[in-house]
Amino acid sequence: MPILEVNDLQAGYGPITALHGVSFDVEEGELVAIIGANGAGKTTLLMAISGIVPALSGAVLYRRRSITGLAAHVIMRQGIGHCPEGRRIFSRLTVQENLELGGFTQRDRWQLRRDIAEACELFPVLGTRMTQVAGTLSGGEQQMLAVARALVGRPKVLLLDEPSLGLAPLVVRQMFDVVGSLTARGITIVLVEQNARAALALAARAWVLEAGRVTLAGTGKELAADPRVRAAYLGE
């Protein structure tokens, strides 16, 4: 039984429809990837799942129950975390304050402390920067903070939007290592990436999005070997 199911989802902004009926599903503990070019609708898809952008039609089911049309903060509280595109960290607040806000729904202070410590284990550099103002972190550290902040909210499903965007190659590797390790912690991952090679290597299954529609689907391996994917997204 899939933990998250997206059925024929349409969404957009005002008169512009960005998603024209997208369907996919994720099993519990699975890592799936959505790949595609700029403007294909990947970010809109995640935002429509997490309730930031309203769905025009179609449905999002979480554990078989519809969460379509719920407010973003309600969806988050049900267990769907969203690490949005462009990091969106609170740049004037300290690293510590950012992480505490990530655990806003956690009322048990001790549990929150443990969750923050756990997130910092994944990105040890954050632990050394707790009192630093987040806007003064390097780009890689800011991205780590964004992911760590989302993890402090203890999501069952984590929507990850371009965690490798704009990072140095070495940091990209580190980021993908962490993302790949999250499923071992029982977190289901929906990974949106332009870095198709790395995403497909991690993903059990993947979907290719083009102009708001799914054009290809398969296991990560199948897609990585598919000539159309190789030509369009792997630069071969």
Partner: peptide, 24 residues
Amino acid sequence: SRLGRAWVAVREDELAASAMGISA
């Protein structure tokens, strides 16, 4: 307090705040 932090979070970035489970 939680409320005070939520005020600041909403001021800083409403979208990110709602992704933290805060009702703006």
